[in-house]
Amino acid sequence: QAKEDFKKMMEEAKFNPRATFSEFAAKHAKDSRFKAIEKMKDREALFNEF
């Protein structure tokens, strides 16, 4: 479920497709859906799949 929420957050964010993961992470670090994925490498993997 956390992965689905994370993907939904990325869809809602409508970020620049050229944005890096660190830019995305800095902007969304306080979002509970971002925090729900415990490991940063897992967050980055989901970001890269998107």
Rank of each mutant, 00 (worst) to 15 (best):
K35C: 14
K41M: 09
F34I: 03
M40Y: 06
Q1W: 05
A25N: 05
D42E: 09
S22E: 15
E11L: 13
S32C: 11
K3M: 11
A36H: 04
F34R: 00
F34G: 02
S32P: 14
K14H: 12
E49A: 10
F21K: 02
D5L: 01
F50R: 06
K8M: 11
S32I: 09
A2V: 14
E49T: 06
M40C: 04
S22W: 10
M9F: 03
M9T: 02
K7Q: 08
A29Q: 12
A29G: 13
E49F: 06
K41H: 06
F34A: 02
M40G: 08
A25R: 06
D42P: 01
E4G: 05
K35R: 12
F15K: 09
F21L: 03
Q1M: 15
K30I: 09
E11R: 10
N48D: 15
R18W: 10
F47L: 03
E11Q: 10
D31V: 00
D5W: 00
A26K: 11
A26P: 01
A26E: 13
K30V: 10
A26W: 05
K35Q: 14
F21G: 03
M9S: 03
F47E: 05
K39A: 09
M40S: 12
D31W: 00
R18C: 14
F21S: 04
M40K: 06
E49I: 03
T20Q: 10
M9P: 01
L46E: 02
A29F: 07
F21D: 04
K41V: 12
R43T: 05
R43Q: 03
D5G: 07
D5R: 05
N16W: 02
N16E: 12
N16G: 14
D5F: 01
R18N: 15
A13T: 12
M9Y: 00
K27A: 15
M40D: 15
E12D: 07
F24L: 03
S22M: 11
R18A: 15
E4W: 03
K3N: 04
A2G: 07
F47V: 04
F34M: 03
M10V: 14
F6A: 00
Q1H: 03
K8R: 13
I37Q: 01
E4H: 04
L46V: 06
D42F: 02
N16M: 09
D42I: 04
K27E: 12
E44C: 03
A13R: 11
F47W: 13
M10W: 03
Q1E: 10
A36I: 00
I37L: 06
A45I: 09
H28R: 03
M9A: 01
R43N: 00
A19K: 06
K30N: 14
K27T: 12
E23W: 04
A36W: 00
A29C: 13
D31T: 00
F47K: 06
A2L: 09
F15T: 14
A13S: 15
Q1F: 06
K14C: 10
S22F: 06
P17Q: 10
E38T: 14
R43Y: 00
K27D: 13
S32H: 12
I37G: 04
N48V: 04
T20H: 05
K41L: 06
R33G: 01
F24Y: 01
K35M: 14
K8Q: 09
M10T: 04
F15S: 13
D31Y: 00
K39L: 09
E49H: 02
F47R: 02
E12W: 02
T20R: 05
F15W: 11
F21R: 02
K8G: 07
K14Y: 09
D5T: 04
F47C: 03
A19M: 15
D31H: 00
F15L: 15
A26R: 13
A45S: 13
M40T: 10
D31Q: 00
A2H: 15
F47A: 05
A26G: 07
E4V: 07
S32G: 11
D31N: 00
S22P: 12
D31S: 00
F50L: 07
K7H: 08
T20F: 01
K41P: 09
D42W: 00
K35T: 14
K39W: 02
E44W: 01
K14V: 10
Q1R: 11
E49Q: 11
N48F: 04
D5V: 01
H28G: 02
S32F: 06
A19S: 13
T20A: 07
F47H: 06
I37K: 00
F47D: 06
A13M: 09
M10S: 04
E44I: 11
K30C: 14
A29Y: 12
K14M: 09
A13H: 07
M40Q: 12
K3Y: 12
M10Q: 04
H28M: 15
A25Y: 05
M9E: 02
M9V: 01
K7C: 08
R18K: 12
M9D: 03
D42Q: 06
K7R: 12
F50V: 09
E44Y: 03
H28N: 08
K7M: 13
A29I: 05
A2M: 09
D5E: 08
M10A: 07
F50W: 05
F21M: 04
K14S: 14
P17W: 08
K39G: 11
A29E: 15
K35F: 08
K7N: 11
E11C: 07
F34K: 02
F6V: 00
A25Q: 09
F15H: 13
E23N: 05
E11V: 11
I37C: 02
F34T: 01
F34D: 02
E38F: 04
K41A: 10
E38Y: 03
L46R: 02
D42S: 06
E49L: 07
I37E: 02
D31M: 00
A19F: 11
F15E: 13
S22H: 09
K30P: 06
E4R: 09
E12G: 07
A26F: 06
E4S: 07
K7F: 15
K35V: 12
K27I: 14
E44H: 05
I37D: 04
L46C: 07
K27Y: 10
E23P: 01
S32K: 14
T20C: 09
E38L: 07
E23K: 01
K27P: 03
A2I: 12
A36L: 02
A19T: 15
S32R: 13
K27N: 15
K30M: 12
Q1S: 13
K39R: 12
F24D: 05
A26Q: 11
K27C: 08
K35I: 15
I37V: 14
A36C: 09
F34Y: 15
S22D: 12
P17R: 08
F15R: 06
D5A: 08
E38R: 10
A19W: 14
R43C: 02
E11S: 08
S22Y: 06
M40P: 08
A26M: 12
M9C: 00
L46A: 08
E4N: 03
A29W: 08
E44P: 00
K3F: 10
F47N: 03
K8W: 01
A29R: 10
F15Q: 11
F47I: 01
E11I: 10
K27G: 09
N16C: 12
F50I: 10
D5Y: 03
